[in-house]
Amino acid sequence: MTKNGHRPKIVVIGGGTGLPVILKSLREKNADITAVVTVADDGGSSGIIRDYVNVVPPGDIRNVLAALSELPEIYLDIFQYRFDTSDRFFAGHAIGNLIIAALAEMKKGVFASVQELSEMMRVDGHVFPVADEPLVLNAEFSDGTFLAGEAEITAARKSIKRVWVTSNEKNEAEMPAAVPEVVEAILGADQIVLGPGSLFTSILPNLVIGNVGKALAETKAEVVYICNIMTQKGETEHFTDADHVRILNAHLGQCFVNTVLVNTAQVPEGYMDKEKYDENLVQVEHDFNGLREQHCRVISSNFLKLKNQGVFHDGNKVVEELMGLVGRPNHELRHREHS
């Protein structure tokens, strides 16, 4: 809560495992949270369910619901439980994914089902799937070739030039749109947070939807990007922090990212389990001049958390910075070229 007692409206956009880390810490700060979650995931349990049931992929939605839920821990453990690989029929499926898929069928749409499930799970905030239909992620690579599908795009391990989303329905000419609630949340926000998460497969699939990009261009809120700590295989290999922001701005056709949070702490050599976290390659290199050229305010600090031989953002440290920013007048933050 800010000094004047206002409960800040913070919209967090993304997907993947990084998003819940930030949401849990934000919840402790009594922020009015809206989580906007991608519906273009086609991997893991989410992808299998999507292949057999005509619903959006539920995995990221499940993790966000759990992060914002006030249910007792035992209920959340059941919701998050993933069946063992030896269980043949249910192998690898999370119970929450099955519940979301069932509710989406019952309610004839994932958006309504997630709102109902949010009430059932006593969610503190709002969880909005960015669209009410499953979307397909498409990519053009630097060599001029194209691929569709998140898993296929990252498996190609090529340099990605741009991404966009199309409807899963047969009428691909009709461009998908975000649900009105997402646009309203962006326009009414005090702060918009992008990430942390996979640049091309978790963050951009939300932003490249036409009415989302338009709302981000029009919002008076500060747009903060939490830059990834590690480069990611098949997505951001050899990327600097400035490269991440350059790609975001290029997709929306303007410098819309106002502030970038950059981790400067070093991961101890040999710490990370590279088999378990095989998507992570090396630490993102810094290019502060490149960030300033894009009119970004740069906040560099130790945002690193080491856990279970993996590299993560420290949610509490990140949120301390976010809350410090949200308490300042927007006009102090929107127009600047300094770090």
Score class of each variant (00 low, 15 high):
V36T: 04
L304V: 11
T166Y: 06
T231I: 04
E279Y: 13
A112H: 13
K220I: 00
V123W: 07
F90H: 12
K276T: 15
E152A: 14
I49S: 03
S25M: 08
F128M: 09
D41V: 03
E184M: 10
E133K: 07
I74P: 06
F83E: 06
L306K: 07
G324E: 12
T166C: 07
D273W: 08
G16Y: 04
I299N: 07
I33M: 12
N54L: 07
H244Q: 13
G195K: 05
I49K: 02
I48L: 14
Y225W: 07
F83S: 12
L304D: 13
L248A: 08
I160H: 08
Y75N: 07
L204V: 08
E105S: 09
A185Q: 08
I192Y: 03
E293G: 01
I74V: 15
E222R: 06
T240G: 10
S45P: 00
H331F: 14
G210F: 10
S202W: 01
L187T: 02
L19M: 15
F89Y: 14
G234Q: 10
D241F: 00
L322I: 13
L65G: 02
F288S: 14
E140D: 09
E332C: 06
I78R: 06
L304I: 11
E237W: 01
K161F: 11
L207P: 03
E320V: 12
L216G: 07
V223F: 03
N316M: 10
K317R: 15
